[in-house]
Design a protein around this nucleic acid. Sequence first.
DNA 1: TCCTTGAGTTGAACATGTTCAACATTCGCG
DNA 2: CGCGAATGTTGAACATGTTCAACTCAAGGA
Lengths: 235, 235
Amino acid sequence: MVTLATVTAPPPDPTTSKAQQTRAAIVAAATKLFRTGGYDATTMRAVAKEAGVSVGNAYYYFGSKEHLVLAFYDEIFAAHLAGCERVLATETGFVERLSAVLEIWIDVAESSHEFAGKFFKHAAEPTSPLSVFSPESAPTRDGAIALMRRVVAGSDLKVAPALREELPLLLWLVQMGMVLFWVYDASPGRTRTRQLVRQAVPILDKLLRATRIPGVRGIADDVVALVKSLVPPTA
Amino acid sequence: MVTLATVTAPPPDPTTSKAQQTRAAIVAAATKLFRTGGYDATTMRAVAKEAGVSVGNAYYYFGSKEHLVLAFYDEIFAAHLAGCERVLATETGFVERLSAVLEIWIDVAESSHEFAGKFFKHAAEPTSPLSVFSPESAPTRDGAIALMRRVVAGSDLKVAPALREELPLLLWLVQMGMVLFWVYDASPGRTRTRQLVRQAVPILDKLLRATRIPGVRGIADDVVALVKSLVPPTA
DNA sequence: TCCTTGAGTTGAACATGTTCAACATTCGCG
DNA sequence: CGCGAATGTTGAACATGTTCAACTCAAGGA
């Protein structure tokens, strides 16, 4: 239903069409209010008022309150991507690259943690447009997987080509697992999640390199086959 | 409305006090309506009406609509446990025991799948009483972990004692992972989730038995240490 | 017997996400 | 320009989870 026609510019001057402006105003208002007051405390009436539009108008552009959160995802991802550039350009160690990328995500998302639980409850609902597998979130998801592809591509990691091909997707799933843990992490500064990354990434590295051991390689192939057979062809 | 409360002392027999009856009536009504109409379509007004109480009274016993779902968890777990008894008593192969237990869960939960997505969105929200880590759901959770302990205890699996000790918790986490997949599984009869179980359990078995390989044992120890350090001491 | 106390119960009121019929504006085109 | 269609906009109305001040009632003591 919602088409997100924002990508390709229909008219010659797409920068500030009226609709784009209204849309942007609503997103800006929602983002601001979400950040200051959290998800539940931010009413659609407040968003509309802040944006200077009517409630119904907000629903004209966004199918539901949840859709407004997608803007948040994009914002976080954009900041994450920007924050990773330096490390991706300089570092070559796989453990260092992956750890850095994951920890930068934690940094970027920290300010959203308080109400992230409210967001991610929608991300876990299959029917929600906020689901991490939903078509609506496909652009952000694809971007995140592409980021993982860069993590692998620029690293010194040596694995079988077949596994290497699937690795970005696997690493994105790993990241989703980390996010799940992060949502539950009440420790100050998310130290527990950081601890998880620092401990788990070297283990993952060991596991990946262990795929060269004959007895382990078969298991790795099984895992790859399993994931390939289960992840929807959409991704 | 049968009264007969006059006969004997109320305190000595707490099994069916008036309050317990009311509580049970509300749970029964909610369960019935959830099953027939789903979560969202079941209003608190409908539940109250079905139970023959007022809306406010339902809230006197249950803090929110979500709390009513806990009764559902208990129901599913009880059915799961009962369904597993035969296999646990007869089968000794680890792969067979674990696969059977997981598949029986899929059978038991099948009738709830349609609205399970709506339930589990709360299960993924840390602040919700429905969270799989919440104190409110502790009894059911502990029961589920105990079930996994029986799966391990009665099996032919040979692993290091340290790992064996942590295995029930690990297997429960595996089950939670399966449930997460299951929630997203739209295939008829949940064939994809069953496929996942049939493929993943042998892999898990291989991995566990591979912990005897010197180069792998260290990784296994790392994983155990990681989980032990991260799972809250409550569990 | 009468009062006190506290658990149990009520339904109207409230807050808020969402819808919708109506109105306004802009656009495309002759 | 004129005008019909598409797009944009409005706010009142609706549905439903939740709250709360008031009420009922049974038990127990003085």
